[in-house]
Design a binder for these strands. Structure first.
Length: 239
DNA sequence: TTCCAGGCAATAC
DNA sequence: GTATTGCATGGA
């Protein structure tokens, strides 16, 4: 099973190349091969986030992208940028209604606004401390995917991110069943990559790329039914 | 018009 | 413990 996941990772990497996640609005890099991308991807540069502000922007994106297309999230982030409100301090100073209005394009804005306003004191209190997964999961609006996304992309911790796309692809190629739990899928991916990548920093990069690659592949072949049309991964469906 | 998007909390069984 | 349901905008 580990071997098969590894094959999936390498097939996707060969097909699409490095993805440059997590996108940042203030970074002007692009990846023209990416579906639905406007800007902000930093392909091949794994030095991000380089500041607390960039780290915060990633956390913000983790909330905003819950069940929402990234293009919509980007619209919200650009609204905030225009208001000079891409920092935790500025958002706390802002009127709730103005903040909520700014993130309206990404949907569920009333709940996401509350989640983020409650998250900010937690974020500021961290200072240089890296939060644990458990600490994050205790926060309102932070479930397993949001926690892992923050840990992997904002805090550079070796925590694999599973999303609906990941499960959809894995079901199609016969790796899991419909009801396989989040934690099981996460663990399967982590074990598979740990087996072949011993260096910690490279492992984190591989986690980052694998998740991004699964999203990219799913956007192309698993967004509309029937899922998996023209998906080249199914050719490796032999074990 | 209908379906879907880089989920989560609250509630029901 | 697992299964539903509400949350909401914007694009295909």
């Amino acid at each position: 099973m580990s071997e098969k996941i590894s094959v999936v990772y390498h097939e996707l990497y060969d097909a699409y190349g490095p993805q440059g996640w997590w996108p940042l609005v203030e970074h002007d890099g692009t990846n023209p091969t990416k579906t639905g991308a406007i800007s902000g991807y930093h392909v091949g540069d794994y030095t991000f986030p380089r500041t607390k502000k960039e780290q915060f922007e990633i956390c913000l994106g983790c909330f905003l992208t819950q069940n929402t297309a990234w293009t919509s999230v980007e619209r919200s982030l650009l609204n905030l940028k225009k208001l000079h409100a891409l920092s935790p301090q500025r958002i706390m100073e802002m009127d709730d209604k103005i903040f909520t209005e700014a993130i309206k394009p990404s949907g569920y804005h009333n709940q996401k606004s509350r989640y983020i306003k409650k998250f900010i004191p937690f974020f500021l209190a961290l200072d240089e401390h890296v939060p644990t997964r458990t600490e994050l999961l205790e926060l309102l609006g932070v479930g397993p995917e949001t926690a892992d996304s923050m840990l992997l992309y904002a805090f550079k911790q070796p925590e694999f991110v599973v999303d609906t796309y990941t499960k959809r692809i894995f079901i199609q190629v016969g790796l899991i069943r419909e009801k396989t739990s989040y934690d099981i899928v996460k663990s399967m991916c982590e074990v598979a990559l740990k087996n072949e990548i011993l260096d910690q920093d490279r492992l984190i990069v591989a986690y980052q790329e694998f998740h991004a690659l699964l999203v990219e592949h799913a956007k192309r072949h698993y967004s509309k039914k029937p899922y998996g049309e023209n998906c080249f991964l199914q050719m490796f469906d032999d074990k």
